[in-house]
């Protein structure tokens, strides 16, 4: 009997490893190994023709902390994340609740919301360039109708980052809405009816039933939005290139600049490690803290 159970357990273990190994191999090759290699190279100095690379420990990190641009970029990115994450989630949720209701032309509304997602970020950025361009841009054209002066949205430090933020929200909200729509479809109709009979208003129903049932989706979207707030920088290349005077520069863009414009690979590696660490910690908090308060069906 126990021999049989043992055999069964061993077989289960073999199955487990077999199922695990493809993902494990790929992750090791393309995620874990590069991360470790990056960590390793972040602890060496930048090699020049006269000075070969040498082990410097945390010197690259302390250099970064002393770099004022680094702090500007961090601040920019925090603002960028702090605005784009909640706003795009909020808009996605509102649009989903609306598009899930009994409205006319529902299919059209859904498609319209989803269009920005299908567009490559570069194309989207070009589109927005057309909105933002001073004088010729749509925004200015509309403004001039009301006698407002022309504004160089992308060209001045006060508005550049905000212009970028709006493009990101526009791009993300439709994508997140699709997840919310899918989640809303899984909420049975009769819950609404039961709540109706109990006398719950539409708002009470949304707050006490729908939002809690959407929590797993919200958690998923929040993690994605957070990753995007670091990852999504394609439009920077088209719209502002991080300028003017670093006003719209984000971390990943700065990393790219470090590595491929200034050829300072060790600094770029150090920054990358810090981004990974921060993202890892935040994702862990989101999962372990919010997960406990989330109901999965």
């Amino acid at each position: 009997m126990s021999a049989h159970a043992n055999l069964e357990r061993r077989r289960q273990a073999i199955y487990g490893w077999l199922l695990l190994s493809p993902a494990a191999v790929l992750l090791t090759l393309f995620a874990f190994y590069p991360s470790v290699a990056t960590l390793w190279s972040s602890m060496f100095s930048r090699g020049t023709r006269r000075k070969p690379t040498e082990f410097v420990g945390t010197e690259n990190y302390s250099d970064l902390f002393a770099d004022p641009t680094f702090w500007i970029v961090v601040k920019n990115n925090l603002l960028y994340a702090g605005i784009t994450i909640p706003v795009s989630i909020f808009i996605a949720l509102s649009m989903a609740l609306w598009a899930n209701g009994k409205i006319r032309a529902r299919g059209f509304v859904r498609t319209a919301y989803f269009t920005p997602t299908v567009l490559p970020m570069i194309a989207a950025a070009n589109l927005w360039l057309f909105f933002y361009t001073p004088g010729l841009g749509v925004l200015d054209q509309i403004g001039s109708l009301f006698g407002l002066p022309s504004v160089n949205w992308l060209g001045q430090p006060e508005t550049a980052l905000w212009a970028i933020i709006i493009v990101t929200i526009w791009k993300e909200a439709g994508f997140f809405m699709i997840f919310y729509l899918a989640a809303l479809q899984t909420i049975p109709e009769d819950l609404k009816e039961a709540a109706d009979i109990e006398g719950a208003s539409r708002w009470t129903y949304t707050r006490r039933i729908v939002l809690p049932l959407l929590m797993p989706t919200t958690l998923f979207i929040a993690v994605n939005a957070m990753i995007n707030s670091v990852k999504l920088i394609d439009h920077l290349f088209i719209l502002t290139k991080g300028g003017p005077s670093d006003a719209s520069k984000l971390i990943l863009y700065y990393i790219w600049e470090m590595a491929f414009a200034f050829f300072d690979a060790p600094s770029a590696a150090a920054m990358t490690i810090m981004v990974i660490a921060v993202l890892g910690i935040v994702a862990a908090v989101q999962f372990f803290y919010l997960d406990k308060r989330t109901h999965y069906q």
Binding site: E193, A194, I209, H295
Partner: peptide, 11 residues
């Protein structure tokens, strides 16, 4: 009302 499908709030 008691629903054919119970309609209990799962969370």
């Amino acid at each position: 009302m008691v629903f054919q499908s119970y309609a209990l709030f799962p969370h």
